[in-house]
Design a protein around this nucleic acid. Structure first.
Lengths: 223, 223
DNA sequence: ACAAAAGTGTTCCTCATACACCCATGT
DNA sequence: ACATGGGTGTATGAGGAACACTTTTGT
């Protein structure tokens, strides 16, 4: 028994303070015209992660920025009417900016806010929900929020990432203390912003830590 | 391009105070005679989770006990010399007791302590390492430790699960308070043990919580 | 002068840790 | 009597939440 294997990408970014996902409009059946996660078939001699990176590059033109990790696999019989297809979903967290390229089996691509989403093709609603939940959880105990930021960022920008992903408000004062005092979360660059409203802010780059000690917990999570 | 799809199981349990994994000895090539994770091909009309449950039942005869979740997928070209094979790994946490059944493409099955393991077939070392790390992490913020216990258990048994999985010693007094005071972790049954050494212990069953608030953190994890 | 955002100090409370101490059983 | 494990009480310290307050810019 053989299967087709695809990779699908949950690509998340922050635009205008809202968590957004990249969706394509399908240019071929099945689900022609429906919004879907970008993805495609794994090539004969291609590693799964390499396939995900290739799809990411094809859609955004970015390489080696942000964060990419395997999310989960979905292979329920009948999830694709063309036959038995197992998809390995990947989660990508990206800084804002990339303009999506259309092409391939997609008629167009665009960033959509994750609140008020249309129904998606295949079982992509489920995959997207899993990806969002993974991102929300990972922000608690890893420094991955910085993957949504450009190489240099302010603590305020970092806080806005948390606020967008978690859909909550955080106290700017406590967040500042927490982010700057947690070892390896952010690294000071010595530079500052200018030309913004309010007092100039120090610019930071991503720290070296892979986990946060202690974690930054979601407000409602605790009790 | 088509692939073969398999499921492999990282089945963990506690035996004699040590974290153990179920390994089979391969009865067919490739890697004939080598220890490996139990697993097999997904059937034409079978869901991935159903395939994992089937393999679990074939190996242990257990159904609907413990815990089963998807771990990750592995599909590097060349990981199986027979061709392009993608495996979806599942993690199972089981109470002690089940005697493994041999059969199929396995010459024998046995529980092996995870310290001092032999090299495994395919990329199963990596899969097993990922499974163990997942289990260690999940004990921190979920009540899954109880999945290693029989339906009724004492707080001391639950503590020994943590000690075995994390390979640390925990303070029995603080652990007791923590486990019993964390909402939904354990539910009192009103029963007690008898015939053991020391004072009889209250018996508990699994609580209803899916996450622990606050989490139970590994001693070395913090700093 | 005022608004706006950055950043610091302080108080209160929750919870983790360490450990003294008591309880109830088997030997 | 004593060992063994179950279970409670309490002091100390680290860290989170709330918020008063100061700093530094643009308008």
């Amino acid at each position: 028994m053989t299967f087709a294997v695809t990779v699908d990408l949950v690509m998340l970014t922050i635009r205008d303070g809202a968590l957004c996902v990249l969706l394509v409009r399908r240019a071929i059946p099945p689900h022609l015209g429906a919004p879907a996660l970008p993805g495609g078939f794994v090539l004969p001699d291609e590693d799964l992660a390499a396939a995900a990176e290739r799809e990411l590059a094809e859609e955004t033109g970015m390489t080696a920025t942000g964060h990419l990790e395997q999310l989960a696999s979905y292979g329920t019989p009948g999830r694709d009417p063309r036959g038995r297809v197992v998809t390995v979903a990947y989660l990508a967290l990206l800084p804002d900016a990339p303009v999506p390229h259309a092409g391939g089996d997609a008629a167009g691509a665009d960033w959509m806010p994750v609140r008020a989403l249309p129904p998606l093709a295949f079982d992509h609603d489920r995959i997207l929900a899993d990806g969002i939940e993974r991102a929300r959880a990972k922000l608690e105990y890893t420094p991955l929020a910085a993957a949504f930021c450009p190489p240099q960022f302010t603590i305020g920008e970092l806080r806005q990432v948390y606020e967008a992903v978690w859909d909550t408000r955080l106290d700017p004062r406590n967040f500042h203390r927490k982010a700057t005092s947690t070892d390896g979360f952010v690294a000071p660059t010595g530079l500052s912003t200018t030309g913004e409203r309010g007092r100039p802010a120090q610019l930071f780059s991503r720290g070296t830590a892979t986990v946060l000690h202690p974690p930054l917990l979601r407000p409602s999570a605790g009790r």
